[in-house]
Amino acid sequence: MAAVAAIVLFFPIGVVAASDLAAASRLGLDTTQGRIRRKKASRRLTQAVGIGSTIWVVGFVALIMLANDAALTRAFFDVEVIGRTLPTIAYGFMLNVRLFLVAEVFILIAGVLLALLRSLPGRPAILLRWLTTAYVDVFRGLPSILVILIVVYGLKRTQLPLLSGISDYWYVIIALTLHYSAYTAEVIKGGADGIHWSQAAAARSLGLTYFQSMRYVVLPQAMRRMLAPLLNYFIGLQKDTSLVAVIGLLDSVNRANVQSINEASLSPYTGVALCFLVVTIPLTRVADWLEKRRRRRELASG
């Protein structure tokens, strides 16, 4: 089976692997020579599959790019158009970055608060726990675009003094905060739950209040295991800032909409893609690195 796959994917090495396999079964696995051939074969199989899949993937991508007289390439990868529209798109992308940074501050504050209220101990806090749980359930369950639409078009209609007079920019901040603070609260609560209860017990026994023991003892220790998942949600948030295009804010996506009509080309969207990748790929790498470091440290401390 594996030999067939190897031959189909990459003929030259696949054939050698297959002959090694045949030799191994001829010699038998109870001989040293047989086992050596078998090991060689398995190494070559992996190699063949690796080289083969790379060639096939590259080939398939090339096919897509060149098919139908390179229609896709001409639409999305017109270098001239990308170069011409990139400045205005990059300018729009600044709005995406600004939304991300400002919302993030509110999200972290709200997330910590929600997490603390959700794990508040004791019977008197039962309603608070219930309320925050309901909040988290609802906003984790809704698509973020729906939250943005409801907040932007809904709050305006209330005509309430503080809520109806602000700009769309701030409505979006509110919507993103509502949505992402629910996720953040879950991550923070999960991190705090992972710290053994005896740490909180020690803190409480010294006279610290619930909030003090969370602030000084539990959350600092939970921080390490919260970082990577939090960063992953931040990356999601960064991408979700592009949803403001639906309510007409001039972010990178909306500017690309305009430019693609002006230029009669889809290449401006490639500029948007480049902008996002420049931010999200390094963040993803950092998240992975943090996670790896945490695992290593946990192993080290036994």
Binding site: S205, L206, L208, Q212, V217, Q221
Partner: peptide, 30 residues
């Protein structure tokens, strides 16, 4: 409970704080 201190089988020191901070945390905050 401040009139009664407790010491646990597993020590339960705060691992992210120095010895000094372990001791001074409650006096400073409480």
């Amino acid at each position: 409970r401040m009139k009664v201190g407790i010491v646990f089988q597993q020590f339960n020191l705060f691992p992210h704080m120095s010895v000094l901070d372990n001791i001074t945390l409650a006096p400073r905050k409480v």
